[in-house]
Structure formats: structure tokens, C-alpha cells
Amino acid sequence: MNLTLTTASTMAFPLALIILNHLITSNNQNLEKLSPYECGFSPLENARLPFSLQFFLIAIFFLLFDLEIALLLPVPWGLNNTTLMWMLTLIILLTLGLLYEWSQGALDWAK
């Protein structure tokens, strides 16, 4: 009895939410909603438009520091002299790279 009630409730609750969603939402379709949207560029214009390279610079920085977090996450569990040396080497290299990019003006938005 308990398994049947649990199965019925787990099937009825999402079904009720789906039906409620269809009843509450409005279906106002206009030209803006029906037009395709692709990465902020209009698909009807020239595909060779110039774009900001700073977007890609920020994306690369995000990937670098995201990778740094992934590499440094297990450090507290394996903290010894070798691990500490590799951790400090990684942090120093990334910091030196960031300072170099900063000194070259690659991070200036208003050029």
C-alpha cells in the first residue's frame, strides 16, 4: 500500500505541475520571439562582422582560473612538501602571467 501511494504521488505531482504550467502560461507569439537567436549575432546579416577579442580573453582567463581551482581543490588532503611546492609553483606562474598581461595592457577595456 505504501509503495503504491508513493508511486502514485511521484507520478501525479509532476503531471499536475505540467498541466498547471500549460494552463497558466500565455502564448503570445510575436516576430521577436519567433526569430532565431544565435550567440547575439543576427543570422540574417553578414557572418564576418568584427567582434570584441576581449570576450575571448575573459573566457580564457575563466578557463585558466577554473582549471586552477580544480587542480588546487584536493591539496588539503595531500598536503606535504612536494604538494606544497607544486601548488606554490602553479599559483606563482599564474600570478606572473596575469601580471604580464596586465603590464602589456591586454586587460584595458578602454583602448
Rank of each mutant, 00 (worst) to 15 (best):
L3V: 14
L5T: 14
T6S: 14
T7I: 15
A8Q: 10
A8R: 13
T10L: 15
M11K: 15
A12E: 02
A12F: 13
F13K: 05
L15T: 12
A16G: 08
I18F: 11
I18W: 13
I19L: 15
L20H: 06
L20S: 13
L20I: 03
I24D: 00
I24G: 01
I24F: 11
T25P: 00
S26A: 05
S26P: 02
N27I: 05
N27E: 08
Q29E: 11
Q29W: 10
N30V: 05
N30K: 04
L31Y: 08
E32V: 04
E32C: 01
E32K: 04
E32P: 00
P36I: 03
Y37V: 13
C39Y: 12
C39T: 08
C39F: 12
G40S: 03
G40V: 02
L44N: 07
L44T: 04
F51G: 04
S52A: 04
F55T: 07
L57Q: 06
L57P: 00
A59I: 05
F61W: 05
F62E: 03
L64R: 01
L64F: 11
F65D: 00
D66W: 10
L71A: 05
L71I: 06
L72V: 04
L72D: 01
L73M: 06
L73R: 07
P74Q: 02
P74L: 01
V75K: 02
V75T: 04
V75N: 03
P76A: 01
W77E: 03
W77T: 03
W77F: 07
G78T: 03
L79P: 01
L79G: 02
L79K: 06
N81I: 09
T83M: 08
L84K: 08
M85H: 13
W86N: 15
W86R: 12
M87I: 03
I91F: 14
I92D: 12
I92E: 14
L96N: 09
L96Y: 10
G97K: 01
L98Y: 15
L98Q: 15
Y100D: 07
Y100T: 14
E101V: 08
E101C: 14
G105L: 03
L107T: 12
D108N: 10
D108H: 09
W109K: 12
W109P: 02
A110G: 05
K111Y: 07
